[in-house]
Protein backbone atom coordinates (compact mmCIF):
# COMPACT_ATOMS: atom_id res chain seq x y z
CA UNK A 1 0.00 0.00 0.00
CA UNK A 2 1.13 3.51 -0.66
CA UNK A 3 1.42 5.76 2.39
CA UNK A 4 -1.59 7.85 3.29
CA UNK A 5 -2.81 10.05 6.07
CA UNK A 6 -5.43 8.81 8.46
CA UNK A 7 -8.23 10.58 10.25
CA UNK A 8 -10.75 9.19 12.66
CA UNK A 9 -13.49 11.79 13.06
CA UNK A 10 -16.06 11.50 15.85
CA UNK A 11 -19.10 12.90 14.06
CA UNK A 12 -20.79 12.58 10.70
CA UNK A 13 -20.36 16.29 10.09
CA UNK A 14 -16.65 16.16 10.75
CA UNK A 15 -16.28 13.08 8.58
CA UNK A 16 -18.19 14.67 5.76
CA UNK A 17 -15.84 17.64 5.76
CA UNK A 18 -12.84 15.31 5.45
CA UNK A 19 -14.26 13.12 2.71
CA UNK A 20 -13.71 13.85 -0.93
CA UNK A 21 -11.85 12.67 -3.98
CA UNK A 22 -8.64 11.02 -2.85
CA UNK A 23 -10.01 10.94 0.63
CA UNK A 24 -12.42 8.02 0.88
CA UNK A 25 -14.16 6.57 3.89
CA UNK A 26 -13.05 3.34 5.49
CA UNK A 27 -15.18 1.27 7.81
CA UNK A 28 -14.41 -2.45 8.04
CA UNK A 29 -11.77 -2.03 5.35
CA UNK A 30 -12.22 -5.56 4.05
CA UNK A 31 -12.76 -4.32 0.50
CA UNK A 32 -10.93 -1.01 0.42
CA UNK A 33 -7.64 -2.35 1.79
CA UNK A 34 -7.72 -5.10 -0.82
CA UNK A 35 -8.14 -2.49 -3.55
CA UNK A 36 -5.32 -0.46 -2.06
CA UNK A 37 -2.97 -3.43 -1.82
CA UNK A 38 -3.74 -4.19 -5.45
CA UNK A 39 -2.98 -0.63 -6.48
CA UNK A 40 -6.56 -0.07 -7.67
CA UNK A 41 -7.35 2.52 -5.01
CA UNK A 42 -4.60 4.96 -4.09
CA UNK A 43 -6.03 7.36 -1.50
CA UNK A 44 -4.10 10.21 0.00
CA UNK A 45 -6.11 10.11 3.14
CA UNK A 46 -8.43 7.61 4.75
CA UNK A 47 -11.34 8.78 6.81
CA UNK A 48 -12.07 6.07 9.33
CA UNK A 49 -15.75 6.13 10.22
CA UNK A 50 -15.42 3.68 13.08
CA UNK A 51 -15.16 6.43 15.68
CA UNK A 52 -18.59 7.84 14.88
CA UNK A 53 -21.12 7.02 17.56
CA UNK A 54 -24.69 6.08 16.77
CA UNK A 55 -24.14 4.25 13.52
CA UNK A 56 -24.12 0.79 15.06
CA UNK A 57 -27.05 -1.44 15.90
CA UNK A 58 -30.63 -1.40 14.72
CA UNK A 59 -34.05 -0.34 15.84
CA UNK A 60 -37.59 -0.87 14.78
CA UNK A 61 -40.21 1.70 15.61
CA UNK A 62 -43.83 1.21 14.81
CA UNK A 63 -44.65 2.74 11.46
CA UNK A 64 -41.09 3.86 10.86
CA UNK A 65 -39.75 0.56 9.59
CA UNK A 66 -36.44 -0.96 10.41
CA UNK A 67 -33.36 1.21 10.77
CA UNK A 68 -29.89 -0.31 10.71
CA UNK A 69 -26.76 1.70 11.46
CA UNK A 70 -24.36 1.51 8.53
CA UNK A 71 -21.40 0.59 10.74
CA UNK A 72 -23.12 -2.45 12.21
CA UNK A 73 -20.89 -5.47 11.62
CA UNK A 74 -22.50 -8.09 9.42
CA UNK A 75 -22.07 -10.81 11.98
CA UNK A 76 -24.09 -8.82 14.53
CA UNK A 77 -26.95 -8.69 12.03
CA UNK A 78 -26.65 -12.35 11.19
CA UNK A 79 -26.64 -13.52 14.79
CA UNK A 80 -29.46 -11.32 16.05
CA UNK A 81 -32.56 -13.46 16.63
CA UNK A 82 -34.88 -10.47 16.94
CA UNK A 83 -33.70 -9.08 13.65
CA UNK A 84 -34.13 -12.48 12.09
CA UNK A 85 -37.81 -12.30 13.07
CA UNK A 86 -38.25 -8.82 11.62
CA UNK A 87 -36.38 -9.41 8.40
CA UNK A 88 -35.36 -13.05 8.05
CA UNK A 89 -33.76 -12.59 4.65
CA UNK A 90 -30.79 -10.80 6.25
CA UNK A 91 -29.72 -13.88 8.15
CA UNK A 92 -30.33 -16.02 5.10
CA UNK A 93 -28.30 -13.77 2.82
CA UNK A 94 -25.46 -13.52 5.31
CA UNK A 95 -25.28 -17.22 6.11
CA UNK A 96 -23.13 -17.98 3.07
CA UNK A 97 -21.59 -14.53 2.74
CA UNK A 98 -17.82 -14.16 3.15
CA UNK A 99 -16.26 -15.64 6.29
CA UNK A 100 -16.85 -15.15 9.97
CA UNK A 101 -13.80 -12.89 10.22
CA UNK A 102 -14.90 -10.75 7.28
CA UNK A 103 -18.42 -10.55 8.70
CA UNK A 104 -17.02 -9.41 12.01
CA UNK A 105 -14.96 -6.72 10.37
CA UNK A 106 -17.23 -5.75 7.48
CA UNK A 107 -20.25 -3.51 7.92
CA UNK A 108 -23.63 -3.39 6.25
CA UNK A 109 -22.77 -0.05 4.67
CA UNK A 110 -19.51 -1.39 3.34
CA UNK A 111 -21.20 -4.50 2.04
CA UNK A 112 -23.48 -2.38 -0.13
CA UNK A 113 -20.64 -0.12 -1.25
CA UNK A 114 -18.06 -2.81 -1.97
CA UNK A 115 -16.66 -2.74 -5.45
CA UNK A 116 -17.00 -5.51 -8.01
CA UNK A 117 -14.71 -8.56 -8.13
CA UNK A 118 -13.96 -8.64 -11.88
CA UNK A 119 -10.48 -10.11 -12.25
CA UNK A 120 -9.59 -7.63 -14.94
CA UNK A 121 -10.77 -4.72 -12.81
CA UNK A 122 -8.80 -5.99 -9.82
CA UNK A 123 -5.59 -6.49 -11.82
CA UNK A 124 -3.74 -3.22 -12.03
CA UNK A 125 -2.26 -4.24 -15.37
CA UNK A 126 -5.56 -4.14 -17.25
CA UNK A 127 -6.62 -0.57 -18.05
CA UNK A 128 -10.26 -1.50 -18.25
CA UNK A 129 -13.10 0.87 -19.02
CA UNK A 130 -14.21 1.17 -15.43
CA UNK A 131 -10.72 2.32 -14.48
CA UNK A 132 -10.68 4.93 -17.24
CA UNK A 133 -9.62 2.74 -20.14
CA UNK A 134 -11.41 2.14 -23.38
CA UNK A 135 -12.69 -1.39 -23.22
CA UNK A 136 -13.85 -4.35 -21.19
CA UNK A 137 -11.29 -7.15 -21.19
CA UNK A 138 -13.85 -9.73 -20.15
CA UNK A 139 -15.92 -9.09 -23.24
CA UNK A 140 -13.58 -11.18 -25.35
CA UNK A 141 -11.53 -12.63 -22.49
CA UNK A 142 -12.21 -14.93 -19.60
CA UNK A 143 -15.76 -14.37 -18.48
CA UNK A 144 -16.73 -17.14 -16.08
CA UNK A 145 -18.02 -14.81 -13.41
CA UNK A 146 -19.24 -11.91 -15.51
CA UNK A 147 -22.54 -10.31 -16.40
CA UNK A 148 -25.05 -11.79 -18.77
CA UNK A 149 -27.42 -8.85 -18.84
CA UNK A 150 -27.57 -5.09 -18.34
CA UNK A 151 -24.14 -4.35 -19.72
CA UNK A 152 -25.03 -1.47 -22.02
CA UNK A 153 -21.99 0.52 -21.05
CA UNK A 154 -19.61 -2.19 -22.12
CA UNK A 155 -18.58 -3.09 -18.59
CA UNK A 156 -19.36 -6.68 -17.72
CA UNK A 157 -18.89 -6.46 -13.96
CA UNK A 158 -21.44 -7.94 -11.59
CA UNK A 159 -22.64 -6.87 -8.16
CA UNK A 160 -20.98 -9.06 -5.56
CA UNK A 161 -23.04 -8.12 -2.50
CA UNK A 162 -25.29 -10.74 -0.96
CA UNK A 163 -27.26 -8.15 0.92
CA UNK A 164 -28.00 -5.88 -2.02
CA UNK A 165 -30.49 -8.14 -3.82
CA UNK A 166 -32.05 -9.07 -0.48
CA UNK A 167 -32.53 -5.43 0.51
CA UNK A 168 -33.78 -4.41 -2.92
CA UNK A 169 -36.37 -7.17 -2.69
CA UNK A 170 -37.66 -5.50 0.46
CA UNK A 171 -37.59 -1.99 -1.04
CA UNK A 172 -34.91 -0.92 1.40
CA UNK A 173 -33.40 2.55 1.33
CA UNK A 174 -30.17 4.12 2.44
CA UNK A 175 -29.62 7.44 4.20
CA UNK A 176 -26.77 9.46 2.80
CA UNK A 177 -25.53 12.32 4.95
CA UNK A 178 -23.17 15.09 4.05
CA UNK A 179 -22.37 18.64 5.11
CA UNK A 180 -25.13 19.70 2.71
CA UNK A 181 -27.76 17.62 4.44
CA UNK A 182 -29.27 14.19 4.23
CA UNK A 183 -30.97 12.37 1.41
CA UNK A 184 -32.66 9.05 1.12
CA UNK A 185 -32.38 6.81 -1.90
CA UNK A 186 -33.53 3.29 -2.52
CA UNK A 187 -30.87 0.61 -2.33
CA UNK A 188 -31.67 -0.08 -5.97
CA UNK A 189 -30.76 3.50 -6.83
CA UNK A 190 -27.55 3.31 -4.84
CA UNK A 191 -26.19 1.39 -7.83
CA UNK A 192 -25.28 3.38 -10.92
CA UNK A 193 -27.48 2.59 -13.88
CA UNK A 194 -25.09 1.13 -16.46
CA UNK A 195 -27.03 2.87 -19.20
CA UNK A 196 -25.69 6.17 -17.90
CA UNK A 197 -22.22 5.10 -18.94
CA UNK A 198 -20.53 6.41 -15.80
CA UNK A 199 -17.27 4.94 -14.61
CA UNK A 200 -18.57 4.27 -11.14
CA UNK A 201 -20.54 1.59 -9.44
CA UNK A 202 -22.44 3.59 -6.85
CA UNK A 203 -24.36 6.83 -6.83
CA UNK A 204 -23.03 7.98 -3.48
CA UNK A 205 -21.36 11.38 -3.97
CA UNK A 206 -17.99 12.51 -2.70
CA UNK A 207 -18.45 13.82 0.82
CA UNK A 208 -21.49 11.67 1.50
CA UNK A 209 -21.63 9.06 4.22
CA UNK A 210 -23.97 6.12 4.14
CA UNK A 211 -25.37 6.33 7.68
CA UNK A 212 -28.33 3.98 7.77
CA UNK A 213 -30.15 1.31 5.91
CA UNK A 214 -33.90 1.62 6.31
CA UNK A 215 -36.47 -0.97 5.45
CA UNK A 216 -39.91 0.65 5.29
CA UNK A 217 -42.95 -1.00 6.84
CA UNK A 218 -44.23 -2.09 3.45
CA UNK A 219 -40.99 -3.91 2.81
CA UNK A 220 -41.16 -5.60 6.20
CA UNK A 221 -44.60 -6.94 5.40
CA UNK A 222 -43.06 -9.09 2.70
CA UNK A 223 -41.82 -12.56 3.23
CA UNK A 224 -38.46 -13.00 1.62
CA UNK A 225 -35.98 -15.69 0.76
CA UNK A 226 -32.45 -15.77 -0.59
CA UNK A 227 -30.74 -18.39 -2.73
CA UNK A 228 -27.07 -18.40 -3.62
CA UNK A 229 -25.08 -20.64 -5.93
CA UNK A 230 -21.35 -20.88 -5.29
CA UNK A 231 -18.50 -22.87 -6.76
CA UNK A 232 -17.40 -24.13 -3.39
CA UNK A 233 -19.33 -24.69 -0.19
CA UNK A 234 -18.16 -21.60 1.63
CA UNK A 235 -16.36 -18.33 1.15
CA UNK A 236 -17.30 -17.59 -2.42
CA UNK A 237 -18.95 -14.71 -4.12
CA UNK A 238 -22.17 -15.82 -5.76
CA UNK A 239 -22.15 -17.34 -9.21
CA UNK A 240 -25.77 -16.25 -9.19
CA UNK A 241 -27.95 -15.24 -6.32
CA UNK A 242 -31.66 -14.60 -6.07
CA UNK A 243 -33.65 -12.69 -3.53
CA UNK A 244 -37.39 -13.03 -3.79
CA UNK A 245 -39.95 -11.32 -1.59
CA UNK A 246 -43.69 -10.85 -1.60
CA UNK A 247 -46.66 -10.29 0.62
CA UNK A 248 -48.19 -13.68 0.98
CA UNK A 249 -51.82 -14.05 1.93
CA UNK A 250 -53.65 -17.32 1.59
CA UNK A 251 -50.90 -18.55 -0.70
CA UNK A 252 -51.23 -15.61 -3.06
CA UNK A 253 -48.17 -13.47 -3.79
CA UNK A 254 -48.47 -9.71 -4.00
CA UNK A 255 -45.87 -6.94 -4.42
CA UNK A 256 -43.52 -9.54 -5.72
CA UNK A 257 -39.86 -8.71 -6.05
CA UNK A 258 -37.38 -11.00 -7.72
CA UNK A 259 -33.86 -9.62 -7.63
CA UNK A 260 -30.81 -11.32 -9.05
CA UNK A 261 -27.25 -10.82 -7.88
CA UNK A 262 -24.05 -11.53 -9.82
CA UNK A 263 -25.71 -11.46 -13.23
CA UNK A 264 -25.58 -7.73 -14.00
CA UNK A 265 -23.68 -4.61 -12.96
CA UNK A 266 -26.59 -3.80 -10.64
CA UNK A 267 -28.99 -5.89 -8.57
CA UNK A 268 -31.18 -7.07 -11.42
CA UNK A 269 -34.96 -7.12 -11.15
CA UNK A 270 -36.62 -9.97 -13.04
CA UNK A 271 -39.66 -7.84 -13.88
CA UNK A 272 -41.38 -10.21 -16.26
CA UNK A 273 -41.18 -13.04 -13.80
CA UNK A 274 -42.44 -10.75 -11.02
CA UNK A 275 -45.46 -9.83 -13.12
CA UNK A 276 -46.11 -13.44 -14.05
CA UNK A 277 -46.59 -14.48 -10.45
CA UNK A 278 -48.14 -11.26 -9.12
CA UNK A 279 -51.44 -12.06 -7.51
CA UNK A 280 -51.17 -15.78 -8.11
CA UNK A 281 -50.74 -18.82 -5.97
CA UNK A 282 -47.53 -20.29 -7.15
CA UNK A 283 -47.46 -23.98 -7.89
CA UNK A 284 -44.76 -26.06 -9.55
CA UNK A 285 -45.84 -25.33 -13.07
CA UNK A 286 -46.36 -21.66 -12.36
CA UNK A 287 -42.93 -21.32 -10.80
CA UNK A 288 -41.36 -23.02 -13.77
CA UNK A 289 -43.18 -20.81 -16.26
CA UNK A 290 -42.24 -17.68 -14.38
CA UNK A 291 -38.60 -18.76 -14.03
CA UNK A 292 -38.37 -19.24 -17.77
CA UNK A 293 -39.08 -15.54 -18.16
CA UNK A 294 -35.93 -14.71 -16.21
CA UNK A 295 -32.99 -13.28 -18.19
CA UNK A 296 -34.73 -13.63 -21.52
CA UNK A 297 -32.74 -10.66 -22.77
CA UNK A 298 -29.46 -12.07 -21.57
CA UNK A 299 -26.52 -12.09 -23.96
CA UNK A 300 -23.94 -14.37 -22.43
CA UNK A 301 -20.22 -14.09 -23.06
CA UNK A 302 -17.88 -16.96 -23.92
CA UNK A 303 -17.87 -18.57 -20.48
CA UNK A 304 -20.97 -17.54 -18.57
CA UNK A 305 -24.03 -18.92 -20.36
CA UNK A 306 -24.44 -21.32 -17.43
CA UNK A 307 -25.67 -18.41 -15.34
CA UNK A 308 -28.96 -18.31 -17.23
CA UNK A 309 -30.29 -21.78 -16.39
CA UNK A 310 -28.79 -21.39 -12.94
CA UNK A 311 -30.63 -18.13 -12.31
CA UNK A 312 -33.88 -19.62 -13.55
CA UNK A 313 -33.54 -22.60 -11.27
CA UNK A 314 -32.81 -20.43 -8.26
CA UNK A 315 -35.82 -18.25 -9.07
CA UNK A 316 -38.03 -21.31 -9.40
CA UNK A 317 -36.90 -22.57 -6.01
CA UNK A 318 -37.22 -19.18 -4.38
CA UNK A 319 -40.78 -18.77 -5.64
CA UNK A 320 -41.79 -22.19 -4.41
CA UNK A 321 -40.26 -21.40 -1.05
CA UNK A 322 -42.15 -18.11 -0.87
CA UNK A 323 -45.42 -19.71 -1.73
CA UNK A 324 -44.93 -22.74 0.44
CA UNK A 325 -43.41 -21.46 3.63
Amino acid sequence: MKPFAYARPATVAEASRLLGRGSPAIAGGTDLLGLMKGGIAVPERLVDLSGIEGLRGWSRERGAGLRIGALTPLVDLEEDDRLARSLPIVREALADAATLQLKGMGTIGGNLLQRNRCWYFRDEAFPCWLKGGIRCFAADGESHYHAVVGTDAGCNRVTPSDLAPALVAHDAQVRLASARGTRTVSVADLFTDPALHRREEHTIRPGEILTHVVVPEAGLQRRGTYRKAMDRKAWSFALVSVAAAARVREGRLRDVRIVLGSVAPIPWRALEAEQAVEGTTVDDAQARRASELVLRDAVPLKDNAYKIPLARELVRRALLRLAGA
Partner: peptide
Protein backbone atom coordinates in the same frame (compact mmCIF):
# COMPACT_ATOMS: atom_id res chain seq x y z
CA UNK B 1 -7.41 -19.07 -15.17
CA UNK B 2 -5.21 -17.34 -17.71
CA UNK B 3 -6.10 -14.47 -19.98
CA UNK B 4 -5.14 -15.80 -23.38
CA UNK B 5 -4.69 -12.43 -25.00
CA UNK B 6 -2.04 -11.28 -22.52
CA UNK B 7 -0.92 -14.48 -20.84
CA UNK B 8 -1.65 -13.01 -17.42
CA UNK B 9 -2.79 -15.39 -14.72
CA UNK B 10 -6.12 -14.12 -13.41
CA UNK B 11 -6.40 -16.50 -10.49
Amino acid sequence: HVDRATGRVLS
